[in-house]
Design a protein around this nucleic acid. Structure first.
Lengths: 193, 193, 193, 193
DNA sequence: GATGAATGAGCATTCATTCAT
DNA sequence: AATGAATGAATGCTCATTCAT
């Protein structure tokens, strides 16, 4: 017999992560207090500490879960030939990853100053850097390098910063991806020319 | 008779702004306490309150000073014909503005979550939005709009996020500008075609 | 079939006491948390509550076990004639008791402020007081009384506080006992004189 | 014109030290919270932090003030010949110091476990050790060394632990000092013999 | 043009304890 | 014989802010 009164069973840990991410993304990491998180969940602050060692730990656990796909993408890309097709596929997949964990990446982008001092900062930076390395040929023109790099940032910015452009979200996402794909294509053209 | 002991006279207000911006940019707004700012200046916290009404006020005053050129740029652009040449000149001038007040814009970009809840948030957003409007033709392709928008973000990202690319700063800046100029050119081409 | 994995059977209660005493003596009562004790034993905090009603209860149970010999010593002494020989034998036996439960007495001595507010405080005080009464004749000189009292404290201090004196532990203990015996002898001499 | 309403002027720092020492000595360091101290003084916790950086800092400042005489005593003793007369004078002066800052030394003795982990622990130990060194000749009998050491502990114990002996405080103090003086005399006799 | 002294509200964290399972 | 999940109360500490001088 189910007791729908008691919210859920054993999923408190996940619920904490969900609420925390939501609040972190909305109001920022520092401005989100553990009291707030606890209140949203109708538990005490101490309950959070049963599940996580520190506030930072909550964030780390979220990142570990949600950023894994990026690692997989990097691993996959490293096993592929460094062709334009590969690079474009990286962008396509990265776009999917980004939209699949939009709240986390929004948080990362909007709290860079905070994140930089947290342990997840370094791992985030190194992932973006790795992706960049996969798109860019170091012997190509400076302009070409900037173009590849911009392709990546277009995807990032596209998630939240391009709200000025009014359009169906999926169409907009497709347009952004198209621009990004085009940028790496132009970058590649420069090198092969 | 000069008193070289006291470094400056009456410029405490400006010194507060300088130190505050430096710390805000480096460690984030929330994590920078007034105590820290005061200690860096070798005055008491109360002294800060003689010059500024609140912590947020310090930030506002900095923004007011440093973001004025953006307003001027927008005003200028609005008085010009909406040609490609104008748009490219906007990007060129914006690049100058950005690099002229790098610390402030870095701060804005890395503390978006915080800034959003502050009064400067809205004015910052509206400026970027206005610039965007000046670069974009609303009747053009979605892709074209994204391209213009990306041109702007390329300049933003270029200031700090493209550290993976090693090159002489000025050359890099020129390359970023070139990519941005090219993006609006492509956007324009789509509309005229 | 023996299961050498599980180190012991049913002796959890005793293991808790052992670990608790060790930690109480090393880091103090207040600074030793039940979490720490539980972690050292690889059980949960709740397990401690299966065996003991409260944190203080753990300490009480340790004291009950280890301080019994002191009660026996007092009882024995009370059944003996109040001669110098008896007093000296009390000191000899007390020295044994002290070294047989060194950790407990070290704890008592180093946590007096805490112990005073705990229920064991009173019983500890009254035991020391009883011993003192057995060594001291209330009608003798003030100086003589102090000497007897000092004999007792010499034994206490000797356990841990005389680390400045480098010597074989057993020899040192013997020397301390000798000084203590001498002190009661001098005290007694004053009274009989 | 005096305003007796406002308790005092600028002596808050000293009042904090006084109340803190009183409470530390009475209830122990860990069990004394900053809230309690603040309430006793009718100020807020934050006020304590205006005057001291941390809780430990309050204790350190007290110790620095009150333990200085011990340093002076050690310095004086080191400038004197290592005769019996010197040693006895050391004991006499030390007795004065001890009774002059009784609360602090009571605290030290009753909170050894706590003090050991605090920064003042080491400095306290080293002072007692230095005094011991001044009273003891390392080439003399083990028994003689123990006797000197015991002389010191008799003074310590005498402040609070000898409450079993009922007598006029000053007479008792004199008796304790006499026993201590006698102990070093006996120690010295052994060496010269 | 500043300081010294203080406050009120808040924060992350820890603790002893409870209880259904 | 023990655990998993949680609580209520407290702790040390920091912060932006105020105000009389």
């Amino acid at each position: 017999m189910a007791t729908p009164q008691q919210p859920r069973r054993g999923d408190t840990r996940r619920r904490i992560q969900d609420v925390a991410l939501e609040l972190f993304a909305e109001r920022g990491y520092e401005k989100t207090s553990l009291r707030e998180i606890a209140e949203h969940l109708d538990v005490t602050k101490a309950a959070l500490y049963y599940h996580f060692k520190t506030k930072e730990d909550i964030l780390i656990s979220i990142t570990d879960d949600l950023a894994r796909p990026v690692d997989e993408l990097i691993a996959w890309a490293q096993s592929q030939p460094r062709t334009l097709a590969t690079k474009q596929e990286v962008l396509r997949r990265y776009s999917d990853v980004l939209w699949g964990a939009a709240a986390l990446f929004r948080f990362m982008q909007e709290n860079q100053a905070t994140v930089r001092e947290l342990s997840i900062g370094e791992s985030f930076r190194s992932k973006v850097s790795a992706l960049n390395g996969l798109l860019t040929e170091s012997e190509s023109t400076l302009t070409a390098q900037v173009r590849s790099c911009t392709a990546l940032f277009a995807l990032h910015a596209g998630m939240f910063a391009m709200q000025g452009i009014e359009a169906d979200p999926e169409e907009k996402r497709a347009a952004i991806l198209e621009v990004a794909l085009d940028l790496v294509a132009q970058a590649e053209a420069a090198v092969t020319a």
